[in-house]
Design a protein around this nucleic acid. Structure first.
Lengths: 243, 243
DNA sequence: AAGTGGTCTAGACCACGGT
DNA sequence: CCGTGGTCTAGACCACTTT
């Protein structure tokens, strides 16, 4: 704790720590701004500025009249950020998901590193859960994914019958494992269709493929998930605003 | 002007209009917050909130002790956002630019639309300036670009001898034409190497190519430039934070 | 030393959501 | 109706830049 920091930033850190400690879940409001100002002995304007920062960082969301709430990432439309793909009727619905396989196994070193597993865990052969998944819009397989989860917080998913997996995983992480995804970081590259791409996505061998590697984080910066998604480059389109 | 809008947003709009009217250039400070609060008859906190918004939108930049200034876009590193490419010594320097050609001509309709030219202008065959450019890091040609500019504001560049073009265009737009780029929007897709790519970027025919279309805007939302950049997909890598 | 934006306070009133 | 966050005020003091 740096005494040179302004009060509102110190307060931000204190509240961020309580968020990281899971003191509130996305459906429970934080204390009101007045309560916080009294509890920490600062003016309400200072509390507001601290929460401004947390809001900009994506940790909380404010609703006038209701309160301030922990924010959950909502990437329902995330595939559509990268792939233009519409159903015949022009609608955008979350793609269907088909789990092809689930394995419980110690991860390759590179993936253990991406999951920020400790040296001890890696040496001890700590297991992970690997999901292989196909995402389908209409009848067309669009993207195939491999998803790696640390076993401990997600053990409930190691035994769940495959048919009970929903189309969207993040709500399941929250409902079944109490894990809230707060943010993610992604890396895009271009590769070539491998044998599985040819078979599962019906691509020509060697066709260009967009590869998206995503690391998803909790509010306390624990890595919750590492996934790699592959889809035909022909469908790829991505738009950015630069300021 | 909507009377239901809070005061700080109305004030934001007033200042934004003055920015759009080029009342200040990036090196001249805006009036101080105290001056603005007196000029508009609001409290200084309200002025600060209005400027907060303008700062978030990327219109202005604040410097404690110096003042508040119009922001210029600085995409010096913009190619490196998309292409991993290092010099032998690991440094990242802005790529060199070689202008291959400059033409003054009426644009194809699609590009006239992208430049937001009016129907009348298009019908009258209003000219544009087209630059063909190669961007080179070390000895390696990395990206080739076609850049289209509306003729009127950029006429100074229609006559400038090609050797006087600098590696970075946006500072030239400002210095020679008084045009400040405030923001841009980009669209990424994947294509195949065409004949020019094969020749100028030394790619195999049909090799995957990343295509970046950029529209650059002034503070008043005039389109200043439309450009398309093409580079080998093999060098492509892009990272995003999602919140 | 003078002038700028940054922090902090204390309090009033407004707009919205749920009871 | 009450409680929430949102707006607005007036003023004090701090940190930094320039003269």
């Amino acid at each position: 704790m740096d005494d040179r920091l302004p009060r509102y930033l110190k307060l931000r850190d204190e509240i961020a720590a309580r968020i990281a400690a899971l003191e509130w879940l996305p459906d429970q409001p934080l204390p009101t701004e007045l309560d916080l100002s009294q509890a920490y002995g600062v003016a309400i304007g200072t509390v507001r500025k601290a929460i401004d920062v947390l809001e900009q960082e994506g940790h909380v969301e404010r609703f006038q009249g209701r309160g301030t709430f922990i924010r959950r990432a909502s990437f329902d439309q995330s595939l559509f950020r990268f792939f233009r793909f519409q159903r015949a009727d022009g609608q955008r619905r979350p793609p269907q998901s088909r789990i092809l396989a689930r394995d419980v196994l110690p991860p390759p070193t590179a993936i253990a590193m991406s999951l920020k597993m400790s040296i001890e865990q890696i040496a001890a052969g700590a297991p992970t859960i690997r999901l292989s998944r196909l995402r389908i819009v209409g009848e067309q397989p669009l993207v195939r994914e491999q998803i790696w989860l640390p076993h401990a917080p997600f053990s409930a998913l190691a035994d769940l019958p495959l048919p009970e997996f929903a189309d969207l995983l993040y709500p399941m992480y929250e409902a079944r494992c109490g894990q809230v995804v707060a943010r993610a970081s992604e890396r895009l590259t271009i590769g070539e269709a491998d044998e599985d791409d040819v078979e599962k996505l019906q691509l020509a061998p060697g066709a260009p493929v967009v590869v998206i590697e995503r690391t998803a984080f909790a509010h306390d910066n624990r890595v919750l998930e590492w996934r790699v998604s592959r889809g035909a480059a022909a469908h790829f389109s991505y738009e950015i605003e630069i300021r």
